[in-house]
Design a protein around this nucleic acid. Structure first.
Length: 219
DNA sequence: CACTCGATGTTCT
DNA sequence: GAACATCGAGTGG
């Protein structure tokens, strides 16, 4: 099921044409074990891995370049003050998808870590587009490649991720992290973005691929 | 570049 | 009522 539509390859001959770049192998979903670990470790190891969304409209994919960890006892974590209707997915099994609406109009994508019952997760804050850029441009209403997915709500809009995916499973189609080998590179650790001072703003729980042009805030 | 501010609806106090 | 894991348009160096 859920086949990727055939790419309209247009090979012209012996010249190397740049108008049809080589298709990236989207791989298969990473297995659940990956997420059943220390949340900060998962947040770091998600860097360089490919986030994939396969739809009939076409596939979109991007290399994860920025994440944040949200932990038990961390005042910035939605689950820190106990279970509610909104944060219920955070207490699900590792690999559960947690999407929430923020500021009444934007969606943020999280992946739940740790065994069932522990409310921790990793926020995906930015990706580098590697597939479906045209779709992303349409959805974002913007041509500039650097603006497509360089923020938590930008990437969800570009990749058509919303509350439909809440409570979903990141280890299965259509939305998954690929088992393709991760891109390697130096990692920067910083304070998290957008938290008020009393919500653990000083904690060093943001992870970035250094100098990547698609970060929400440069590092 | 830096900074301010409005949008918009759900969640929390 | 206030806050919110944001974005983009607007203003002013």
């Amino acid at each position: 099921m859920s086949q990727i539509p055939p790419a309209s390859e247009h090979v012209t001959g012996m010249e190397i044409q740049s108008n049809s770049p080589p298709e990236i192998d989207l791989g298969k979903p990473l297995s659940r074990d990956f997420y059943d670990r220390d949340t900060t470790l998962v947040a770091r190891e998600l860097l360089g891995r490919m986030l994939v969304h396969c739809e009939s409209a076409g596939a979109t994919a991007g290399i994860i370049v920025e994440t944040e960890a949200y932990l038990q006892g961390d005042p910035g974590c939605h689950a820190a003050r106990g279970r509610t209707e909104r944060n219920a997915p955070m207490f699900g099994p590792p690999g559960t998808i947690y999407v929430y609406l923020i500021y009444g109009m934007h969606h943020c994508l999280n992946i739940v870590t740790q065994p069932e019952g522990i409310g921790e997760a990793v926020l995906i804050r930015a990706v580098e587009p590697v597939r479906g850029q045209e779709l992303m441009q349409q959805r974002r209403g913007c041509e500039d490649t650097q603006e497509l997915t360089s923020g938590p709500a930008k990437l969800t809009e570009a990749m058509n991720i919303d509350l439909r995916h809440n409570f979903g499973d990141i280890t299965t189609n259509p939305l998954y992290i690929s088992n393709q080998p991760p891109v390697d590179g130096p990692v920067a650790t910083t304070t998290r973005i957008g938290l008020s001072p009393d919500r653990g703003a000083e904690l060093l729980l943001r992870y970035c691929l250094s100098n990547n042009p698609y970060l929400s805030n440069p590092v």
